[in-house]
Structure formats: structure tokens, C-alpha cells
Design a protein around this nucleic acid. Sequence first.
RNA 1: GGCUCGUUGGUGAAACGGUUAACACACCGCCCUUUCACGGCGGCAUUCAUGGGUUCGAACCCCAUACGAGUCACCA
Length: 487
Amino acid sequence: MKNVRTRFAPSPTGYMHIGNLRTALYAYLVAKKEKDGVFMLRIEDTDQNRQVEGAVDIIYETLKTCKLTHDEGPDVGGKYGPYVQSDRVKAGIYKKYALEMVEKSKAHFCFCKEEDIAAQREIASAKGISFIYDDPCKLLKKEEIDLKLQNNEPYVIRQNIDKIGTTDFVDEVYGTISVDNSTLDEMVLLKSDGFPTYNFANVIDDHLMEITHVVRGNEYLSSTPKYNLIYEAFGWEKPKYIHCPPVMKDETHKLSKRNGDASFQDLVSKGYLPEAILNYIALLGWSPQGEEEIFSLTELCEKFDIKRIGTSGSIFDINKLTWLNGVYIRNMDFDKYYELVLPYIKNVVTKNYDFVQIAKILKDRINIFSEINEAIDFIEELKDYDNSLFINSKMKTDKDSSILALEKSLELFESLNDNEFNYEFLHDKLLSLPTIIGIKNGQLLYPLRVALSGKAFTPGGSIEISSILKKEESIKRIKYAINKLKS
RNA sequence: GGCUCGUUGGUGAAACGGUUAACACACCGCCCUUUCACGGCGGCAUUCAUGGGUUCGAACCCCAUACGAGUCACCA
């Protein structure tokens, strides 16, 4: 059997959104599941009007950060190049095949004006009739065509489709799709600017590049018969088709880059980990065999199975991604985590505190890095808070008990050296204090946390916080709280 | 409008004619705990869009209907 070869063939028209990335992932997995599978990148830039500056770089960058390494592509080369379609246009590839189609009577020259066809389409749709263009140019005699060509009349090359019978194919995901040929319209293969349409270029390149499995969104499901007719015209072997269900934003709308946050880049900048994003989107539209859901890319390669791709659209659930991201953070090796988290911490804390300690109290408590800001902003600066925070029925604290707790804590802190402000030592001292005074742990530690942080909830408790703030700052905040309570 | 595809809880989903319809997220309880989280335990679809049919037996097969999506470009 031939080596499996798949491609990711985006058009460089802007951001990379999650649906796109998932298609790339699946194409990668289909290839890499096999020992010698090849995953390649091809840039489909046949629409000269839609080019977006820097879009190709975003594609490279995204694939790189996701570690979806392509074996062949514009930047890494390969035997089947060039890998950018506009370069292939220059090499005359598409025109040659388009002309061959004409020769085989599977396509014809068309000199019709675009506006005329559009007008007809308009009329038909106003009448509610389905429109399939019946091209008069098909009837042109050879001499007439030659004359028009000599006069440099603009033309396109349009596919010929016999309106009789049906065309069907087997999709690996959706099963047998059967379409009546009379409903197929004869699409343009080569545009008047000499560029091929996506429809044509895609087929030519997939064949020339020996793609064995075509992985793409299911919006191509209904036009696949037309592509197959091209394969048949040349007598080429058709690839296996793997059409993927859409990724939705809600029940009725596909995910689009229109409304922002669905792009890969957005998610990364919100503090999501590429590995977690990839893991999550793998689960949208595909389900693993067992109950395990956490997979590295390598594991995905092993587990992935085309047969388990679903057929209905799935709604992108940021909730679950967030949870999954938290799992990745919690499972991460501390050094790696620290390296990633440090910039976020430094973004909030500019004073010289123990960043390792801060990172530690955060690790089990955040799902995404962007939560850090709010979680530890009190370290840098105590914001004013209300005395009512000290009163907590569950903790059995009120104004007087809080004052007592704070005064005792203050006494203790003042008796310590600054270098005794470490977690172990403070843990010993602070936890033995309630017994001595004859109160419950919470009655001491809760008011202390409020005083140190100005918040009722914080990552870590008062022991952790005081060990981070150290002697001087802790005492300052306790004194402030006592004054506040007494005034 | 024609054609193609889809429809299992709020979300992702499993189930390959016979199960109490898995599991995960979310949600709700309880436990652990100095708070929050983490972790642990438990709850959460009498029902698989609806209506028919086939079958001893249907979420799974068939047919209608409804709803949704995709497509019908010199866009991909």
C-alpha cells in the first residue's frame, strides 16, 4: 500500500480559527498515525483579491506552536513543489491541464460576461427557480473559438458535465453520497486572469502531490462529485475523502473569526496552552475509544481513528477548554510551569517578592493564566476594603474577635525575624497560636487573611500570604486593619 | 427554491437490535480544608427532534414530517 499523504491547504486570508486548526490537526493525525505518513502544507492563494499581508506567517507560526510539523511545504521544500499555488500558476501547471480537459471535451472555452451570468442568476432566484448556467459557448464552433482567442477576448475554461445519471462516492465519515448529475453546475476551472479556481487547483494539486487522504470541512461534501468528475476526466485515481463536521459557535452559527475570540491566537493570548487547545479541539467531532480524554499529540496519533469522527456539528465550549487547560497546568512539571507563569506574575507584582512561592500557590488554583491578575493583585498593593469582611458567621468571627486575633498576630510577627517568615516556620507558629489563646483556627487565620489581602478569598491562606509579604509589609497591613476596625 | 448533510441531557459525547442510555465539562449537594481552589463522594436524560412502520425486542433499520446546517461564485 502507498504511503499515506495528507495536506493542510489553507488560503492565506487572515487568522487561523479553531475550525481550521482542527482540520489541520485531523489531517496531521491521519498521516502520522501511519509509520511513514507525510503531512504537507500547501498555500492556496489563487484569489488575488483576497490576499492578506502576513497571513502565511500566521499559518507557519500556528502550526509551529502546535507542533503540527509539516514534512513538506513552501518553507521546508519537498519533491512535489512548488507548494504555493501562485507559484504553480507561474509554472503553467493549471493551464496545461485545463487545456487538456478541453481537448478531452470535458471542458470548454467560455466567453460569456460575468455580469450577464450574474443577471440571469438574479432573475432566476427572483422567480424562485434554481439556476444552473446553460452555457451557450458550448455550442461554439472551433473556428469561432479560434477567432475569439485571436482577438484576445477574455475567456474562462468551464467544466462540461453530462446531465445524465448520478455521481456517487464514499466518504470515510459520511458514507455514500449520491448526487444527481442534473443538479451539478458546470464550474469555472480557469479564471479569466489565468488563475485556476480553488475547485480546479485543488484537484490538480492533490493528484500531482499524490495526496491519498483529503481531509477538509464538510462544506465541500456536496461539490465533491464535481471534483471526482475531473479525476475521471484524466483517468486519475481518486483519494479517500474525510469530510469533517463543522465546529459551531452556537446551535445555528459556525465558528467564524468574525466575532473575535475563536481564533487560535486569541486563545493563546488569553493564556490558554497550545497543547490544551489542541487536545480540546481533537475532542470536538471525534471521540476516543475509552474514557480517557487527556491526550498529548503523540497519544492522539496513536488513538486517532477516522471511524470515530462524528457527523454532526459540535459547539465550541470554552468552559471545557478552560477546565482542560487547568488540568494541563496542574499536571505540568513545576519548572516548565514556572517559566510560563512568571511573566504573568511579574505583570502584577513588580516588587521583589518570592515569585516561586507565588507561583506555587497559584498552580492548583488557576485554569488559565489570565486569571492570575485578579487572583494576586493584592500582593502588590492592598486595596481598601470594608470592615464587614471581618464578620463571617461560618468562621465565627466578629469585630471584637478579629481585633483580638489581629493583635495577637501582630505580637507574634513583631517577635520574629524577617528570615523566619517562611512557610514552615509561620505554619508552626500561627497554628499553635489559636490553642494558646483558646480560639478556633479560623477565628485567627480568617481575619488575618482579610487584613493581609483585603479579600475574603485568596489563593493560599494567611500563612502563605504572610510568608510572601514578609515581616514589614505584613505588620503594616495588620496595623492598618486594627486601626480601621477600632475607628 | 433545488440538491447534500445533520438531529442522544445546558455542552462535548458513548452505544455497532436486547445495558438501570457510559464517560467528561457545567450545575447542585456533601466531605476534606484557615478561605478559595485542588482532591474525594453523590445527584442531575423514564428517554434518544416528532409521527408512523419493520421486529419477540428499536436511540440504533425503513418511511414521512419538523427543525438546523452546507452548497448552488471567475471565494476558498
